[in-house]
Design a protein around this nucleic acid. Structure first.
Lengths: 248, 248
DNA sequence: AACAGAATTTGACTCAAATCAAGTGGCACA
DNA sequence: TGTGCCACTTGATTTGAGTCAAATTCTGTT
């Protein structure tokens, strides 16, 4: 069992590309075996719905690769994204039988699922799983609250700049950063998904991206590939001097 | 040790008016003794700041009586409320030394505090505390996400109706409901605090409350005492057919 | 290379909420 | 009984983002 390549935040384990630190850190083989026995993989194509709000959900899961979103809707169709699930993020709630949100794959994704009941039983017996989940949930709560500030008080331009800096920041942690200080990445979301995330319309998203481009804050190749010549400038546009470390 | 009057959601314990179910449910006296030894009370007057974002915070706490708020601000002063703390709600984060938000008393409050370091150590040894905190944090996350939908997609009128129905609902659980189906309660927030919660200006809050009054959705005595003749009507105005059970 | 369909951009116009600016009303305190 | 303050209301006006309606660009397919 390779313990070197433990992923910092996942609950996945065993031969997952991503490992379960909570288990590995104090590894006991029977725990690993048990997690193995209740684990299975599911993959979804871009655009597919993983689960609808209100549906029965008899598993909890960890995103292995790809990007998924959590959304809520009002009856008249207005929709708001309430979470962006990146590799290693956790979905589902121990102790709850039905999904609270729509979960949709925005890229092709692979999820590592654990059958809920046995997972819950295991959590009862294995304290550090609950402790690890608590840390992860508190982080998500912080991210949600940061997002509330964005939704309630930022202008459209600030919202776009915030989203770009979040994507840039998390991409930068994976890709190499150019020596010139320029940052470059691909947007993993359509304009509509961005709008749903930011509480805007897709037209406004498009206009503000155009405006940021016109003003030299970003450069675009095609519709999705973005390069940021000066990250500090973008962070100023985002409106918060904070390190922008939320939501990742 | 009276176990009958256990409060459903608190971590407070011992001779607190509110008891700690996570402990009491599987009560062991040494745990109770230990919680007692790291516990102390603090009270604040309406309007006082409990702690500023960024300040050192060497305790976690549970609200015993009164109402407090969590807020975030942008440099230019725009502020967004990100949490409303009602009796039994938990503040602070195990493992974090500084406050992430401003905590302000909006009414006189009494808080039951636990010194953070010993609390964390106790949490390590007492699994059901972490499990209980996990449940509470997941509930808060759900409430935050419900609020994101409100901030991102609801109209001013819907926002006001949503806030009123939340306050009504949680007040109704304490006070008796009038046999005629009329619900009555006091607003625990100023117009400005409501605005900060809803991502509006205080003028818009005032106008929308006037409009709801004009349309007979609510009645007002003075500025703060509200009666709702028909709760279903208010829920329809709030825009979601859901039971509105969030945030309480 | 041409086409179909989707994603995106852009334009003209509207409208909900913000802003700016007086008000009013209630309450504490002299 | 006044007076000053604060919370709140209301009005006039502006404005940022939404809506509706074409274009345009991109993608994959035949």
């Amino acid at each position: 069992m390779a313990h070197d390549d433990v992923h910092p935040v996942s609950l996945a384990c065993g031969d997952c590309p991503i490992r379960h630190r909570a288990v590995c850190a104090r590894c006991e083989s029977d725990e690993l075996d048990e997690l193995e026995s209740i684990k299975y993989y599911r993959s979804f194509e871009a655009g597919q719905t993983v689960i609808w709000a209100g549906d029965k959900m008899d598993f909890v899961a960890s995103v292995v690769t790809g990007i998924a979103t959590l959304t809520q809707t009002l009856e008249d169709g207005r929709t708001q994204m309430v979470g962006l699930l990146l590799p290693s993020d956790f979905v589902g709630r121990p102790g709850r039988a039905t999904a609270a949100y729509n979960v949709t794959a925005t890229t092709d994704i692979l999820m590592c699922c654990f059958r809920r009941k046995p997972f819950e039983e295991m959590m009862e017996r294995t304290p550090h799983i609950a402790q690890r989940l608590l840390q992860m949930t508190l982080d998500e709560l912080d991210a949600a609250r940061e997002w509330m500030l964005l939704l309630g008080r930022k202008t459209a331009r600030e919202k776009i700049a915030s989203l770009l800096s979040i994507v840039a920041r998390r991409d930068a942690s994976i890709k190499l950063r150019n020596a010139t200080g320029r940052t470059t990445f691909d947007l993993p979301l359509t304009r509509e998904a961005m709008a749903d995330y930011l509480g805007l319309t897709l037209e406004t998203v498009s206009r503000q991206i155009s405006a940021l481009k016109r003003d030299g804050v970003i450069e675009l190749e095609g519709k999705r590939h973005v390069t940021v010549p000066d990250m500090d400038r973008l962070l100023i546009e985002a409106g918060d001097d904070s390190d922008g470390g939320f939501l990742v």
